[in-house]
Each structure stands twice: as structure tokens, then as C-alpha cells.
Simulated assay, not measured.
Amino acid sequence: MKHFWTSMILLGISGQVLAQRAVKIDVRMFASNAGHWYGIKDDHNVIGPKKDQPKYKPTQLREIGDNILLFQKNNGGWAKNYDIMAILTPVQKDSINNDKSNLNTTFDNGTSYTHVTGLAQIYEATQDQKYADGAIKGINFILDAQYGNGGWPQYFPLQKGYSRHITFNDDAYVGIMNTLKDIRDDRTRYGFVNGALRDRVSKAYDKGLECILNSQINDFGEVTAWCQQHDEVTLQPDWARAYEMPSICNAESAGIVQLLMDIDQPSARVVNAVKNAVNWFNESKIEGIRVKTVQAAPDTSRYTVSRVDRVVVQDPAAPPIWARFYELQTHRPIFCNRDGKIVYSLAEVARERRSGYGWYTYNPQKVLDRYPAWAKKWNVTE
């Protein structure tokens, strides 16, 4: 009897420990989607948020997993800009369920590849096969969307316009590649992926890497970095939205270089790509300025109401900063308005775009900070 009660006490303690260590989903990967759903009215969305829409807690794995499956389209992908943490009403659920054949599926704003990751996390904790099945459908969607040259479009099935371009914007490409790498390497969380599918994933990752290396911009003999988007056939930098011009884009390029630096036993091509990008980051850094956000009178446009402004101020003590875009050939920092007109200072950008878009970045500093240890590890010399 004594042993029985001892066992019950230990079980009780174990239960408390498990409760304290409750598994929860990493909701940060869905932040862009949720932020757009709540913050930007999109007529393409089937449902909009209700006032004070309640949310699931990150530990409510089955409820979140069921939401992810509900939002999954018939082709295995997902539409963007919904909050998978939202506790949906029956009417909202019906609307989403009835829209599954509308294949507006995308990788934009951290979509589809994050949903695969989320389902894998939930399957690992619950061992419920339906979440593994949903993840497998999502993996196949990613593989089906890949171009023959290894790149990925922003939307799949393909649509008209710039969304057909190979898209590095907002780290979509990097997110896909990191997901594929996890699937290839992580046999615990992705243990449900069979050998044949894992082999397809590995080949897709290798093709994706080849496309990255082939897309690095050689600007009249100087190898630099990457654009936000590249033509899906020629791999040359290309236009996306009217204010996202063909250019060398340091914000997204930093994420690409970080991905390359994560490769174990990098090839000579990978090493050279990293070295050239690091040289470019050093060449293109801007010193002695910072971008200051200031309160300003409300400015109403067709897109939003801006209550702040952004100005460039001189500051000798400021850390290095980089423009998001650099002009091809001249390598001057460039900016742009919604009319597609390129300008050469932030002050020339209309207020709505000046305050509503990230024209400067500190991302390359993460690469420069990491580079010495990486170079030493792989015996990289100048």
C-alpha cells in the first residue's frame, strides 16, 4: 500500500511538471499573416476578423492544428493573411471550408512553408496522423511549385504579373529552403516523411541552392548580392510592385547569405558566393546616419492613415546601416514611389510609402558579425 501511494504522489508530481512544460506552437512564424489580417483590409480575404476576435493559446495544439487544416486548400497550399490562432465562428469556418477550391495559394508573408512546420510540430506532440497527412500535402505543394531551374514563384498555381518571378522578398525563398532542410535532416519531427518523399525534398533543396548561386548578381564584372525578385527564365533582377525595382537588395540578400553560411562542408561555389556578398556588404554600408521615426500630422491616402514620418538624420555615432535597394551599375542607394519613379533620397518618397515601407536595413551586419568565425571554420582566405 505504501508503494501504491508513493507511486500516486510521483505521478502527481510528474503531471505537474508536464503541465509546466506544456508544449506550445511557435506562433512567431505566423506573425506576418496575422498582422496583415488584423491590420490591412484585403478584399481577397474570404473572411475578416471580428471585433475582439478571441484566440487560442499556443498550448492548444489540436485546435490550432485543426485551424491549419481548415485553411489548407485542395492543392495542399495555403492562402495568405489569416490568423491561424483565431477562434473562428461557425459562419467563418463554413466560409473558409467552402473556399478550398480557390487556389490562391502562396509563399508570400510566410505562408505555406510555415504551415507545414506548424503541422509537424503539432504531429510531434500529438501523434495524430491527420496533422502528418496535412503536412505531407503541404510538402508536395512546395515541391510541385518549384521551377525546373530550382526557384519558386510567389504564387502557385502561377498567376499573371510579377508573382511569377522567383521571389526572395520577405525571405520567402529562404523560408522554403530552411523548411526543406529541416525535412531532409530532422528524422524526429519529420519522421512521418517516407524515404521517397525525403529524397524528393533533398533534390529540391539542391536545385534551390543551385538557383541561388546562379542568381547572384554579376554587375558588370562585380559579383554582389541578390534582388528581391528575379526573372523566372533569365534569372535577372526584375520589377515586382511599382516601388520594388530591379536592384541589389541588401535586406533579403542578408538572409540568403545566412542560409549559405549554414551549409555544412560548403562547396567552392558557396564559399565564393558568401565572400562576394560580404565584400558587397562592406562596400555598400552607409555610416554617419540613422533613420528617425517622428510623430506627424495624420496623412490620409487610399491605402492607410499615417500618423508618423521617417527622416534621415546625421549621427556620427550611428552604427552602419544599408539602403534596402542599390541601383544597378551606379550602386547608389535608390528609393521609389508608387508611380514607379526612382528617386535618390528618402525625403523624395511620398509620405505613405516613406513611413510604410522599410527603406533601410541593418540585416547585413548579422552576416558581417558572423563571417570571421565562419571563414575560420572553413579555412576561407581572401
Rank of each mutant, 00 (worst) to 15 (best):
P316I: 06
P316K: 10
P316F: 05
A317M: 12
A317G: 01
A318C: 05
A318F: 09
A318P: 08
P319E: 14
P319T: 12
P319I: 12
P319C: 00
I321P: 05
I321G: 06
W322L: 10
W322D: 07
W322Y: 09
A323Y: 01
R324A: 10
R324S: 08
R324D: 01
F325E: 06
F325I: 00
F325T: 00
F325C: 02
F325Y: 15
Y326A: 02
E327P: 05
L328W: 02
Q329S: 13
T330M: 05
T330H: 07
T330Y: 03
H331N: 13
H331K: 15
H331S: 13
H331I: 05
H331G: 03
H331F: 13
R332K: 15
R332C: 01
R332G: 01
P333V: 10
I334Q: 11
F335D: 03
F335E: 04
C336L: 03
C336K: 05
N337K: 09
N337H: 11
R338K: 14
R338A: 13
R338C: 02
D339L: 09
D339N: 15
G340L: 11
G340K: 13
K341W: 00
K341C: 00
K341Q: 14
K341Y: 03
I342T: 15
I342N: 04
V343G: 01
V343N: 05
Y344V: 08
Y344W: 09
Y344C: 10
Y344L: 08
S345I: 07
S345Q: 12
S345D: 14
S345G: 08
S345W: 05
L346I: 04
L346R: 05
A347L: 10
A347C: 02
A347E: 15
E348F: 01
V349R: 10
R351M: 14
E352P: 00
E352L: 02
E352G: 00
R353V: 00
R353Q: 14
R354V: 02
S355F: 01
S355K: 03
G356W: 01
G356P: 02
Y357W: 07
G358R: 05
G358I: 00
Y360D: 07
